[in-house]
Amino acid sequence: MTCVITEAVPSVDEARPRSSSISGKLNWLRAGVLGANDGIVSISGLLVGVAAVNPENTGAIAIAGIAGIVSASLSMAVGEYVSVSTQRDSEEQLIRLQRRAIEADPAGQERRLARMWTSKGLSPKVAAQVARELTEKDAVGAHLTAEHNIDPEDLTSPWAAAFSSLIAFICGALLPLLTMLLFPPSLRIVATFVSVLVALALTGYVSAWLGDSPRGRAVLRLLTGGSAAMALTFLVGHIFGVNA
């Protein structure tokens, strides 16, 4: 009996890179974590600086906190929208260029796709078969996923990133504001420090868990940055408050 060994040929779905869905997930995660972290750190720093001047001035603390949340959250959302819109514009331009290239030379583009798969480790025969099957199903998508890790059917949404960042910022910023307003003046700064550090630790842990990255490193980064920000703003508020 003769045993014939053949090289396995990946299916179309197996051959397609799966990084587009991961990139979408990471983009939402990045916008959410950045928004929550910025809301916690920036507003807590602002409030600690104001409270360092006079912790009993509840009105000034409340006005500073609300004004800071409104302006900073909108600014961050707009920044996310502009940033992701630029990325999406670049992706759409790549799609248009790839579509024109395929229309101008379909056979040449299929050979080019086969060479891409050869460079990824497939034999020339298998690479040619994969390129042919992918081209028959979706030529433009095949090139974009293989060369740029872009799924033309799943482009990054600037509105989703902006909304995610806006909501996350507000949720994060409410913690130091409510802590300042709910605790008595003598405990406001200490309570805000403690609550913010706990929130940053949780934010770092959850973001690392969702992104499948080291938890301790993420927590340490956020705790270090948050502690430094609050300490510096407290020092600024205390110095200027005493000298005023």
Rank of each mutant, 00 (worst) to 15 (best):
T2V: 09
T6D: 03
V9H: 03
S11M: 06
S11Y: 01
D13Y: 02
E14P: 08
A15N: 07
R16T: 06
R16N: 02
R16V: 07
R16S: 03
S21A: 08
S21E: 06
S23C: 04
K25F: 15
W28A: 11
W28V: 12
L29R: 00
R30F: 09
G39L: 06
G39F: 08
G39Q: 05
S44M: 11
L46K: 07
V50P: 09
V50I: 13
P55H: 13
E56C: 01
N57A: 14
A60R: 03
A60S: 07
I61T: 09
A62V: 13
A62N: 13
I66M: 06
A67H: 04
I69L: 10
V70L: 15
V70N: 12
A72W: 08
S73E: 04
S75A: 15
M76C: 10
V78W: 05
G79L: 03
V82G: 05
V84P: 09
T86I: 07
Q87L: 07
D89M: 03
S90T: 04
S90Y: 04
E91H: 00
E92Q: 03
P106R: 04
A107R: 01
A107P: 02
Q109S: 08
E110C: 02
E110Y: 02
E110T: 00
R111K: 13
R112Q: 08
R112F: 06
L113Q: 02
W117V: 05
S119W: 02
K120E: 14
G121T: 03
G121K: 01
P124F: 09
A131I: 00
R132V: 00
E133C: 03
E136M: 02
K137I: 01
K137W: 05
D138N: 05
A139V: 00
V140C: 06
V140M: 06
L144C: 05
I150D: 11
D151C: 12
D151W: 07
E153K: 13
P158I: 10
W159F: 14
A161S: 15
A161N: 09
A162N: 13
A162S: 10
F163D: 13
F169D: 03
A173C: 15
A173K: 13
L174K: 08
L174E: 01
L174N: 06
P176F: 00
P176V: 02
L177S: 07
L177M: 13
T179W: 03
T179Q: 05
M180L: 12
L182S: 14
A191I: 05
T192Y: 07
V196W: 09
A201T: 05
Y205S: 04
V206C: 04
W209Y: 15
G211R: 06
G211N: 10
S213M: 11
A218Y: 08
V219I: 15
V219Q: 04
S227W: 10
A231V: 12
L232F: 15
L232S: 14
I239A: 14
I239E: 08
F240G: 13
